[in-house]
Amino acid sequence: DRIFMTRTEALEFLLKAHQTAVDKIGHPSHKQTPADHAAIEALDRLLLDVRARRVDQFQINASAAQIIVTD
């Protein structure tokens, strides 16, 4: 599946995904793992790359739809 978004929409989408990941590892019942921190770092890099126009398409994980940034 493909989803087309403007750059602004894609950045909002990534910010929400980032916040969800941060909230998940901050929850008291969740045991933090290196994979959790790696996922947040990957989202940080992706946010910067989309914002800087170095990336025009991405996929958060293998089961997610491919996001295509349109400007």
Rank of each mutant, 00 (worst) to 15 (best):
F13L: 11
T33V: 06
A42M: 13
F58E: 00
I25D: 02
D1K: 10
Q57I: 14
L11S: 02
D49T: 02
K16N: 08
T8A: 13
A38N: 08
N61F: 10
I3C: 05
D36I: 08
T8I: 13
Q66S: 10
L43V: 03
T33C: 09
A38E: 13
D23W: 03
R7D: 01
S29I: 03
R54Q: 06
L11H: 02
A10N: 00
Q59P: 02
H37S: 10
P34V: 09
V69L: 08
K31N: 15
T6N: 08
R2K: 13
T8E: 07
A35T: 05
E41R: 08
L14V: 04
A35E: 14
D49H: 04
L47R: 05
L14D: 00
D49S: 06
R53H: 15
D1Q: 10
V55N: 02
R54H: 08
A17Y: 06
A64K: 09
A39Y: 15
L46R: 00
A65K: 10
D56M: 11
P34R: 04
V55K: 08
A52F: 14
D71K: 04
A10E: 00
L11W: 04
I3K: 07
T6M: 03
I68T: 09
R54M: 07
R54T: 09
L48S: 14
I68Q: 07
N61V: 09
L11T: 05
A62D: 11
M5G: 00
A10R: 00
A62Y: 06
M5Q: 01
R2E: 07
R54K: 12
Q32E: 15
A17W: 07
R51K: 13
F13K: 02
R51F: 12
A38Y: 11
V22T: 10
T6K: 06
T8F: 14
V50L: 06
T33M: 03
A38S: 08
Q66G: 02
Q66F: 13
T33Y: 08
A39L: 15
A65C: 08
R53T: 08
I68A: 04
R7Y: 13
R45W: 03
D56H: 14
D36F: 05
T20Y: 11
H27Y: 05
I67G: 00
H37G: 06
I25W: 03
Q32Y: 15
R2H: 11
